[in-house]
Structure formats: C-alpha cells, structure tokens
C-alpha cells in the first residue's frame, strides 16, 4: 500500500445503516476516509462535484463506491449506470451493498458493470464479518491504479 488511503463513498439513505458501516470501519481500524451521501442525486452531485461538493479537499474522488440500490430521488441502478457510462468515473469499482436479494437486481447490477454485489446480512456478527472481509479484500488486497 502506498500513498493516500483510498477514499470510500457510501451512498446510503438509511442513517442507521450508515452508522453500522461506519462503526464496522472504525472497529477494523481502517484509516480510509468514509464519505456518506443520503441519496442517488447527492451521490452524482458529489462525483461530478456539484452543489456543494465542488471542493476537492472536502470532497475527494473516491477509490471505491459502496452503493445501495434503493435510494430516494435517483435510484441506485441509475447512479451505477451513470458512473459506468462515464469514462472517468467508470473506472471506480462500485460495490453494491443492499438488502435486496432479488435476482433481477443482481442481474441489472452486474449488467451495469457492478464490481461486486453484497447483501446486508440480517445477523449482527455476519454484518461485521462482511464488513471486515470487505475491508481486507477491497482495501488491503485489491490494487488500484494511481
């Protein structure tokens, strides 16, 4: 690992879930910066540095995006489509983190080049395990271009 730790953008409308993810990251002592937006529109604004996200200091480009599918205003899939349709943003791995186990959602997500598809476990320890594993995989082992 070298340079700045990867910035993670979490797109999640449920405050509780955002808190869960944040706590897990803290427990795993991941130094990575976790930035959260509550809906699809906000996510896009952030990525395109619009509406209050224009400062690169406060709104750095994320190295990986955790995206919920069911989002207010702009749907998660819509966000995914926009990201993957953009030559610049398309390189950012997008990991879907959702409660939906629906086949159609998975198909659509992969069709739009989701890098991974994770279902939020209902069990507390499993959720922690998932987040730990995520951390190891995407933040420790996974290599990103500079």
């Amino acid at each position: 690992m070298k340079g700045e730790p990867i910035v993670i953008l979490l797109v999640e409308d449920d405050e509780a879930h955002t808190e869960i993810v944040r706590r897990n990251f803290a427990e795993c002592r991941m130094a990575n910066q976790l930035l959260c937006v509550p809906d699809g529109q906000a996510a896009l604004d952030y990525l395109y540095r619009r509406n209050g996200f224009s400062d690169p200091a406060t709104s750095p480009r994320p190295g990986i995006i955790l995206l919920d599918l069911r989002l207010p205003k702009v749907d998660g899939l819509e966000v995914l489509k926009t990201i993957k349709g953009d030559a610049n943003l398309g390189m950012i791995p997008v990991v879907i983190l959702t409660t939906s186990k629906a086949e159609s959602d998975m198909v659509k997500a992969y069709a739009h080049h989701a890098s991974s598809y994770l279902v939020k476990p209902v069990d507390f320890s499993q959720f922690s395990q998932l987040m730990e594993t995520f951390g190891f995989y995407w933040l420790a082992w996974n290599q990103y271009p500079s």
Binding site: D14, A16, L69, R70, T99, S100, V122, D123, F124, S128
Partner: peptide
Amino acid sequence: ERFLYTASHDLKSPVVTIRTFIGY
C-alpha cells in the same frame, strides 16, 4: 413485483438495523 420488492426491501432495512444495533 415492485411492490413486493419494495415491501421486502423496505421492511428488511429496519430488521437489519434492529438486529445489528441489538448486537452493538
């Protein structure tokens, strides 16, 4: 389908929250 999907997703979310925070 959407209704079911929505229902299951939106109902699942609080469950996840509850169980996780009970763990915490």
